[in-house]
Design a protein around this nucleic acid. Sequence first.
DNA 1: AAAACGGGGTA
DNA 2: TACCCAGTTTT
Length: 348
Amino acid sequence: MNPVAGSFAQRLLDWFDHGGRHDLPWQHPRTPYRVWLAEIMLQQTQVKTVTPYFERFVAAFPTLPDLAAASLDDVLAQWSGLGYYARARNLHTSARLCCELHWGELPRDFAALVALPGIGRSTAGAILAQAWGERFPILDGNVKRVLARYHGISGWPNLPAVEKQLWMLAEAHLPASRMADYTQAQMDFGATLCTRQNPACMLCVMNTDCIALRDGRVEELPTARPGKPLPERTALVLFAQNADGEILLQRRPPTGIWASLWSLPEAETHEQARSWFALHLHGDYDQAEALAEIPHVFSHYRLRMHPLHWQALVARDVVRDNADLRWVPRAALATLGLPAPIRKLLGE
DNA sequence: AAAACGGGGTA
DNA sequence: TACCCAGTTTT
């Protein structure tokens, strides 16, 4: 067998030419800024979800300096609903750093990229390979799954020892050229063919070499994350409206869950909620209408939100002077970064 | 209700 | 290196 034509990378590239995705919005045009933005959005999110966000985001901020010049609020508004909002904050910070340190461009240098917040080894490699054709490996969840199966590697891929081995294999498979295509090919292959469930092994271009397939272990590789029960928390959310139907929103603190997003004021107990109400609003706390519980699952705990609703309330003076607390008309909700379940509750 | 997708930051 | 942090969609 021809050792080049038969190599892992060559087969993947041959497959990519007909089976890969060639019409993703960040491929046309494939600029460093657009590749970077796409890679950040794709970090924890699938292509199908990302695509409309990407198109809206580049329309709002067409260039890196545009993004740097925007307010964090405007950036979070574009990101609202995508989740993992630290990505948006890091993106914004990184854009400003690029303007200070790199003449308004993304650096074409691995160490300089990794020095930017939100860019780790895999994302830096993906950017360099796709934007410039440079020879760096990536190791996202798709690649981890493909390599774990192809090489028959057991153990949860995020275990340091397993991950180290996977990085070495990813590096060893790099082709001599076509790095942009190869990088996209790996992601497409994992996302569409070597999927977690029901992979298309019959159609797979590697199916003569895949160790997991040979050993009948495709379904059990990669090894699942060790399970652990999620802790549960509850919260009261205060949904206050004034006589004009405007909603009282509060900016969340800059760290923690939903950092810097706008949301409904939150309290742990009725006692806390009652005193917050008394401090900020006129009216009767006990007139609240209890709305249906909103269950929400984060990756590390489960949150059960209990909304309390009041209409035609009047705010105390403190609200007027508070930059992080304001009445928002329904029509303005689209311009703010809101957590997805809160946006849904408010009827958007 | 559970599973899937899934990388970065920091001590 | 070990451990911590972090949302939404799909099944």
